[in-house]
Amino acid sequence: MLREITLGQYYPADSPIHKLDPRTKLFTTMIYIISIFCFKGPAAFVVITVALAAVIYLSKVPFSYMVRGLKTIVFILIFAGILNLFMTPGRELVSFWKLTISYEGAKNASLMLFRMIYLIVGTSVMTLTTTPNQLTDGLEAALKPMKKIKVPVHEIAMMMSIALRFIPILIEETDKIMKAQMARGADFESGGLIKKTKAMIPLLVPLFVSAFRRANDLALAMEARCYSGGEGRTKMLPLKYENRDRITYVISIVYLVAICVLRRFPF
């Protein structure tokens, strides 16, 4: 189960989406997120779906990769969906046994599901087509103004990219420790919430110890390779806007305007 987390998993391919500047992708993703949370009406829904489908098609990343991120939250999705479905008061739609589904409930649940799914799939497009380093470079550039108020932007970006690099390693390690503890009779599955939480302690302690050791090793390795913060560093992939980025900016603004217009005149 743990291995299926796709957060920060880059899928190498030669596509126009991969080639976009990470700042462009960050901006577009923001616009997209705004659009899925403030759209109104079926026409806007169609616009969003077509836009997402077009981007997925252009990215050349297999569709199965996109939805893989969903698997990990399937449970949350179902749970939140059911809650919304039955708990929203309003006009009765169907009713059986002691449960009623209201018209509003059905609407809320489907809207919520749509937003969650589109959010995950949409942001996966970005993380799958952008290497973590590019992503953090983009963030660093986008947050640059905050340097003026002494926010350590470079350090934050570096921390993020290292975190992304080590997520899969730590997940694998958790898996290993879990199996090692189970081999010695540890039980992570049965019992109530408290018992289960207690069972996590022999898992978390070795995991933390090893994470600190790794952090120490990594710091040494970075120092040995002359790392000394953001000052005086050059970039292997300097951020540079191309025409495709300008076009993308224009398209995403047109897209946002369209969503806003459809919000005023929903049909």
Binding site: G8, Y10, T131, P132, N133, S161, I162, L164, R165, I169, R214, D217, L218, A221, M222, R225, C226, Y227, S228, G232, R233, T234, K235, M236, L237, P238
Partner: peptide, 25 residues
């Protein structure tokens, strides 16, 4: 080997040292 590779793509990791010492792109 795991604790000394910094980047998530091989070539970017190899470029990490030169970036630090300010080698042109």
């Amino acid at each position: 080997p795991d604790n000394q590779i910094i980047a998530s793509v091989i070539q970017e990791d190899v470029g990490f040292g030169p970036e630090n010492i300010g080698v042109p792109t």
